[in-house]
């Protein structure tokens, strides 16, 4: 079973460049066309299930706007 992950886009940084969207192997990202950021961009957002927390979007993101979390395999492990 693939790992489950999620991302949080800090919208004050996001400029809607779409590099994360095109890089996402799971194709679960898109621009949120229903809202704009303070700088006037449609921010990137997760629009479908399937994020594995691979972190590729955060690697390509030029604004360090994306925080990536991944579910731990052993739930009882002491946090790092």
């Amino acid at each position: 079973m693939p790992l489950k992950g999620r991302i949080v886009v800090t919208e004050k940084y996001c400029k809607g460049c779409e590099l994360c969207i095109s890089s996402c192997p799971q194709e679960v990202l898109a621009l949120a066309n229903d809202r704009i950021t303070a700088k006037g961009y449609h921010p990137a957002t997760m629009v479908a299930d399937g994020c594995t927390g691979c972190g590729i979007c955060s690697v390509i993101c030029p604004e360090a706007a994306i925080t990536v979390y991944r579910e731990k395999t052993g739930v009882n492990r002491i946090p790092a």
Partner: peptide, 15 residues
């Protein structure tokens, strides 16, 4: 969150 998630990426302290 601490128990079930690990942070794969967040903004580095030096930013």
């Amino acid at each position: 969150n601490c128990e079930i998630e690990t942070t794969v990426f967040e903004r580095p302290d030096s930013l």
